[in-house]
Amino acid sequence: MTDWYRTATERVLALVLLALLPACTAPATPTTDRPQLGVAADPDLLGRQLLNVFPDGRGLPPGRGTVADGARLFAQHCAGCHGRDGRGGSADELTGATRPLTSVDADKTIGSYWPYATTLFDFIRRTKPMNAPGTLEADEVYALCAWLLHANGIVQADAVIDAHTLPAIRMPNRDGFIRIE
């Protein structure tokens, strides 16, 4: 084994083999054994399906809504569970917090607890009404946001909520959270 490259020809052959060695034995890249079966998502279709709305307003669609329209829509779609004024129903209390966040039985309403107004749009558009989620038009969702914000004393009765005004709202409990992650 020690003198296997003893002739010139064999030495050349050995060098060629050594040069080829890395190509033959290089470890497979981490992806070559993966199926790679993902299909490019159609941007138009994907764009119509996306529902995430971020605190800076990314994800909000065109449209606008008023407090008055929101009041009508709330009575129609929401009051059955949440109560006529957004409280006193079978579902979560949305308005009218009286017990402070420092109490054991604190009222965690939109006005007293929610840190971002954009969460309203994200949540209402995807989940409401519960018997037909995802059926409200963008204008209707904006209007419901407007009424809920007004009912919590955060915007005036003549407020118009849209993709610019909603993320600009600073919620009362914006700094009420300690991030643990």
Partner: peptide, 25 residues
């Protein structure tokens, strides 16, 4: 950034005696 969905803000956060809530626990 996180989306700040309803379930990671108004739910699944833990109100402490100080009135502040632990988030992303």
């Amino acid at each position: 950034q996180p989306v700040m969905s309803r379930n990671e803000t108004s739910k699944y956060t833990e109100l402490q005696p100080s009135g502040k809530a632990r988030q992303f626990t």
